[in-house]
């Protein structure tokens, strides 16, 4: 066991974590944050996506000890004062959520994509999100959501 100190969704926190625990274990067991879910457990499906120092990682393959001193952002940290981000709004407006299990991962990865490519075409969206799986197969709606979000974000920057 060790104590890890990190910034979680803009708040300085510390937690007891065993060396063999993943960041997903710690988020669920110590902070009651259930948005990052371990699904495939192999880094393939993207359901456990969290941002570490602003970069997307598969939380199921990331030891909790490695976030010591770093910044962790989960899906729960995106909305500010109860207001959803344009990407979250776009997922709702296009019906891209379906059962919702994979949605946190898709929303976080879409955020990474749009930060790097503010106006992505279908091919770029497919390439970027190819590491996220949606078992409801809401892929057409997800691509539409990312495009809608891109428009909202570009409009917000004007």
């Amino acid at each position: 066991m060790r104590t890890i100190h990190f910034t979680l969704n803009d708040e300085a926190v510390s937690a007891q974590a065993a060396e063999h625990h993943s960041i997903v274990d710690v988020l669920r067991d110590r902070f009651d944050l259930f948005g990052a879910r371990e699904s495939c457990a192999q880094g393939l499906c993207g359901c456990c996506t969290v941002l570490v120092d602003g970069t997307a990682v598969s939380g199921c393959l990331y030891l909790a000890a490695f976030v010591d001193g770093k910044t962790v952002t989960t899906i729960e940290g995106l909305a500010q004062n109860g207001k959803l981000t344009p990407i979250q709004e776009a997922f709702l407006e296009t019906g891209a959520t379906q059962c919702g299990f994979c949605t946190p991962g898709f929303v976080l990865m879409a955020g990474q994509l749009l930060a790097a490519h503010p106006d992505p075409d279908d091919e770029e969206i497919r390439h970027y999100l190819s590491g996220n799986l949606c078992r409801c197969a809401a892929y057409p709606e997800i691509i539409a959501a990312v495009k809608l979000a891109a428009g909202k974000l570009r409009a917000g920057r004007l």
Binding site: G43, S58, G131
Partner: peptide, 12 residues
């Protein structure tokens, strides 16, 4: 690298 695993794995 573009097709090596996925972006999250390549980040780490």
């Amino acid at each position: 690298l573009r097709t090596l695993s996925n972006i999250r794995v390549r980040n780490v």
